[in-house]
Design a protein around this nucleic acid. Sequence first.
DNA 1: CTGAAAGCGCTTACAG
DNA 2: CTGAAAGCGCTTACAG
Lengths: 379, 379
Amino acid sequence: MRRLLPAGDTRETRACYLISSSPYAVEINMSHSRTHPCLPLMHMMNLEQIAKLSGVSRSTVSRVINDDPHVSDGTRENVLRVVRLMNYVPNAAARGLARGRTQVIGLVIPTGISTLFADPYFSIFIQGVSSACNAHGHSVMLWLAEPEYERRQIRQIVHGGSIDGVIVASALTDDVLLNELSQSQRPYVVVGRRPNDWQTSYVDADNSGGARDAVRHLLRLGRRRIATIIGPQNMIAGLDRLTGYVMALREYGLPIDQDLIAEGGFNESGGYLAMQQLLPRRPEAVFAASDTMAIGALRAIREVGLRVPDDLALIGFDDTPLAARTDPPLTVIRQPAQQLGRMAVEILLEVIDYPEVAPQCLILPTELVVRASCGAALV
Amino acid sequence: MRRLLPAGDTRETRACYLISSSPYAVEINMSHSRTHPCLPLMHMMNLEQIAKLSGVSRSTVSRVINDDPHVSDGTRENVLRVVRLMNYVPNAAARGLARGRTQVIGLVIPTGISTLFADPYFSIFIQGVSSACNAHGHSVMLWLAEPEYERRQIRQIVHGGSIDGVIVASALTDDVLLNELSQSQRPYVVVGRRPNDWQTSYVDADNSGGARDAVRHLLRLGRRRIATIIGPQNMIAGLDRLTGYVMALREYGLPIDQDLIAEGGFNESGGYLAMQQLLPRRPEAVFAASDTMAIGALRAIREVGLRVPDDLALIGFDDTPLAARTDPPLTVIRQPAQQLGRMAVEILLEVIDYPEVAPQCLILPTELVVRASCGAALV
DNA sequence: CTGAAAGCGCTTACAG
DNA sequence: CTGAAAGCGCTTACAG
């Protein structure tokens, strides 16, 4: 696979591969001579050259580059002129080596293909991370954790010295990487609450608060017999969202009825099955702990001919784009995905700068997005 | 924003921030003393130490690490044992500096928020890139191109020396980064065909072939009066998909009717408006050059009370998850997003290893995904 | 097969 | 305010 070059290895011919069913496709092999435009080669400048060109020492150029105040204004301007003219950017590897800091943070995301595939949550989260990194002059190295490379990836992340710290977006309670990380000196923060882990910093959405808000909303709308489709209880988010459900019911002095609780595995078919299980119990409303489960539930409800929200109100959790496009559109609790990304970076940079300080954790508020499925319009 | 630490800066106290509406939330400030577990510090090994521990020179260790055959089996095993024991991984920065190669490739993605937000295309594409990189022992540095940081990002990418090459997923015909890149010596490949640019390597989906297949499919199903909602014609993909539409019609000896072509800007509201414009022309079928436009079109069609596919067949392009969940589900042309990512890496690594060779380009086939909206079931 | 030494491009005390 | 020099942790001819 690595060798894509055409047989002749010719330097004059454009290599065009058309792995395509289209007999009409317009790509053609063409001879041309513009492969080497012989531009002003300006072969990757370095400190030495900048120093020479501006008539000072490398030390001084370095100081200018790094905004060291101990440089006279004249020298500074001179050097800066040359730097800009030559498009000089200090070599990241050399700088990293000398400083022991790479200005790169790692971002590790589990690639349960299903997850990343359909859910833009990670896309938005990554945007948050990226933008916060930019704001702080850092770059982000992305690792999608593939099982096959796990050991190598982990060694690289923990011992490779290519990053200053790492953000781990892992749902698992017992993660190999996290274990390694906690043994190491490397700064890290995880996305997702870690209740009994007092040495790691984390950010998370307020899952229990969000779930409570969802159920409160249903209660305010007059529903009383409220069921819930819960996520796996070995995931903290799954636990927390159930907690929120319980809290809201308690507030209203309502009993917790085990028959109104069904597990849906955080996926659509799970939600579908859970709903089928709940249907005979005649709930007036259902809080699904994820949008995907809500969508499955919707299918089950429709199959028995009940109407949402008239017969049965429904609220999801996450706010995936699908949620807005179901029939009826889903009322949901929205996760602050972008904010989570941003804050993960902020905290990580703190931890990097002040490694001695206590671990930090941050719970961000969720938001109730009212659409049609909860029946707010009916009241 | 950078300072998140609590006022006291105490080292014994866990800093917990609860930016949340939840009075019930369970996080509490807790005193505890496990912050510094005093683990075996094994402070980032280096060659020197490994050499000392295995009784050989640094050179030899280096050779072992790099699979140099000129090492006796005995020495090799000895060194390897120590390496594994100490969890030694060569420092990436130092290695990068010495070799002039970082084993990191850059991935630049435009962040027209809309795009990345709802469309998992990029997620899947990134997965392809990541997995191919893993397979070749490379890492990926991710840049989401934010306008505000553009200049700095570009300087960093082109002149920063932190990456060996870069994949640019840019739709724009005139991209600042691409211009800079083509002036530089830095290897790069772009995602998206570049018709008149003979010096850059690229990968792309077979947009024209895909569009042609879509329209062919409609033709085979007996539809004749086929309209199309096209994308912006300053984007190559927009152009190519129109070309495919034209090709298919030509194959069947049908005329190209300007009145059956409307521009929808590759977004939903654009698709909606374009469809409204086409409706009076009474098409029997519509090929929308993107799923989002198809979804907009669907809305317009439903508003006038026409049925899909009975009155009007519809095909989209991309295969976003939404496409499978519209009513009726959308028949679409699927892009080989993952493959595109994989191949972008393969080609980039080629270009990095053989910079003197001619630019390479690769067009990957699309796939027709038949669902309900095209009316295949009706025939 | 192995080691001593130079060099990659930067930063950072240390003198002046 | 400025420069000479050591050092960051690796690789790679060059000798042996």
